Computed example of a mutant assay.
Amino acid sequence: MSIFSGTISSLEKGLDFSATKQKTIAQNIANVDTPNYKAKSVSFNEFLSSAKQSTISANRTQAKHIDFETKSSTAGVFNYSNYSYNHNGNGVDMDKEQANLATNQIYYNALIDRMSGKLNTLQTVVRGGS
């Protein structure tokens, strides 16, 4: 049995999703007045499936170098291509973006609280229960 039992890894994936969603919402809000800009969104299912496929491997020049992979930060992001909210072709609905921002902040805070609780529990175990 693993000491972490996959919970911390799952919370990490959730935090990655929340950070990507935050960046996407911020980009939409920043481009609210840009003509023909199409709003972007992040799908959790697409984020998880594309995160598995979007790794970039490092080039190793010697066998002693450590192999590592980096995940792409734009996994699961898609455009609303046929949606136009404003007369200038812009697809950003500011009310919807602000609601998404508030929802994402609540989700992020819940994940951080759970991660903090999990790490505090592990810290208590390491200290011997005191």
Rank of each mutant, 00 (worst) to 15 (best):
S9Y: 06
S10N: 14
S10I: 08
E12M: 12
E12S: 15
K13P: 07
G14K: 10
L15N: 04
L15I: 10
D16H: 07
D16C: 07
F17L: 14
F17D: 04
S18T: 12
S18Y: 09
S18K: 09
T20I: 02
K21E: 01
K23E: 14
I25A: 05
I25H: 07
I25V: 13
I25F: 06
N28C: 00
N28D: 06
N28W: 00
I29F: 07
A30S: 14
A30T: 02
N31R: 04
D33M: 07
D33R: 11
T34W: 01
T34L: 01
T34I: 12
P35I: 03
N36A: 10
K38L: 04
K38G: 06
A39H: 04
A39D: 09
A39C: 03
A39S: 09
K40R: 15
S41W: 10
S41L: 08
S41V: 03
V42Q: 00
V42C: 04
V42E: 02
V42A: 05
S43I: 04
F44A: 06
E46A: 06
F47S: 00
L48T: 02
L48C: 00
S49L: 02
S49R: 12
A51E: 09
K52V: 08
S54N: 14
S57Y: 05
Q62Y: 10
A63D: 13
I66E: 12
I66G: 06
I66Q: 15
D67Y: 15
T70G: 03
K71R: 15
K71E: 13
V77A: 00
F78L: 04
F78D: 07
F78V: 06
F78T: 03
N79G: 02
N79Y: 10
N79I: 09
N79T: 10
Y80K: 13
Y80L: 07
S81D: 13
S81G: 00
S81E: 13
Y83F: 11
Y83I: 14
S84D: 09
S84L: 05
Y85Q: 10
Y85V: 15
Y85K: 12
Y85T: 01
N86F: 13
H87K: 13
H87R: 12
N88W: 03
N88V: 02
